[in-house]
Design a protein around this nucleic acid. Structure first.
Lengths: 132, 132
DNA sequence: TCAGATAGTTGCATGATGCATGCATCATAC
DNA sequence: GTATGATGCATGCATCATGCAACTATCTGA
């Protein structure tokens, strides 16, 4: 899977896409939260955001409520880039699974969705039965 | 998924694990083939192999049939490291999907297996309907 | 024998990342 | 009100994986 994806990387790095997705979903508007959500160091997220802002995909302005922080949001270009990236991925899946029966594609989508949920709820549980 | 995995990385980098798996399966014994199989540049593979050899997980000796090439293989330590990594992953899955019904786990395994096959056979097809 | 292909390595640059640190701001205790 | 610690973000620095280009040694075929 990794080599498949490595060969088909788009214009946006995976991390950047993840950031755009979260910003589009309004799930977090703090750099800190984004970093936590993606399992990255805050410094890394700071740099990703700087890069995205420089490319005009994200816009940041000071948060009046907390002047240490900043309000993050997608620009119009950011929304378009995300739409385009999503279309690219849909094409990828469409091409690759073209000859799968419809029923199995739905099953796969359903199970992957639930897998994502399970992984999400397993976050914070480092490896195995830790945490006394 | 990526953040889940990023947080649970083992001692071996993902690429290194992939290399060990292929060597264990005897699928390729040439650095060049490994590189192609993993979608990496030969130079990168060369460096990964050097690192693995230095750590005593892989052993390389000149190929008598082709003195440019080298015969690659796992050392005993390499086999053990791979076994340990596999156990770690099994634990990860076991923990994460602990409360899934058995039937769904089997379905997921089956579909993921077939997904891997589809991705594998889609290799070399760059992005979408290219190749005139 | 010689030209071109191939296997592998190394030099160099790039880009993502983490850690330590610094700065500004907030929250709280006194 | 002021001092102390916590928090949000940025920057300096080092590390690591990676790709490209160039190189050496060897093989292959005319």
């Amino acid at each position: 899977m990794s080599r498949f994806l490595r060969e088909r990387e788009g214009d946006l790095a995976p991390t950047d896409v993840a950031v755009l997705v979260r910003l589009a979903g309004q799930q977090c508007t703090r750099s800190r939260d984004l970093a936590r959500a993606e399992g990255l160091d805050p410094s890394t997220m700071s740099r990703r955001l700087a890069s995205l802002a420089e490319r005009g995909l994200v816009d940041r302005h000071p948060d009046p409520a907390d002047r240490r922080a900043q309000v993050l949001g997608l620009t119009q270009a950011g929304r378009e880039a995300l739409t385009q990236e999503r279309a690219r991925r849909v094409d990828l899946v469409t091409d690759t699974l073209a000859d799968w029966p419809e029923a199995e594609k739905e099953q796969l989508a359903d199970l992957l969705g639930r897998l994502a949920d399970s992984l999400e709820s397993a976050r914070g549980t480092p490896t195995s039965g830790q945490s006394p």
